[in-house]
Amino acid sequence: MEREFFLLFSTVATGSGFLVVLAKNPIHSALALVTCFVQIAALFILLGSPFLAVIQIFVYVGAIMVLFLFVIMMLDVRKEARSRFLTKGAPLGFLVILVLAAEMFFLLTRNAVFSTNIVDGVPTTPSIKELGLTLFSEYLLPFEVASVILLVALIGAVVLAKTEEDDTATKDELAGGVVK
């Protein structure tokens, strides 16, 4: 059962991942990315971390992608959809991608350690309580640093999106820019 679910989720995730890169219209590729993120959240449940799955949906799907779509809708992308697809340096890029893919393929197939499941017994799902305790004790400093970074990003986004003259568009951008 689990195996079938994994195959289903990973197939859809891979397909929509390709669509992100291949779609001409940014809206389409954003929606493909949303699909991909939802599949990845489902995979997180298979990996025994429901909390991360919900956070994934909350932050990535509910906030980041909505923000993306908001910006895309504010800009005029109809003419973008007709513009040139690839960059000038595309051949070099293709080469790099090929090397990267080959390298990963090589590492994954030649390394025998990960091809078998070495944990015996069913792995237990760590509770949210454990997760929270570890986060707030052992990783307190990184946590605080992350929150400061979020604050800085918030202020930065507001400053960037703010225009000199107070036009009406600022309010919308502010509303979009403040989130996360």
């Binding site: 929606l31 509910g62 906030a63």
Partner: peptide, 11 residues
């Protein structure tokens, strides 16, 4: 989280 996704239909 899930009710937050509801906005996608609107978008």
């Amino acid at each position: 989280a899930v009710s937050g996704i509801g906005v996608f239909g609107v978008i």
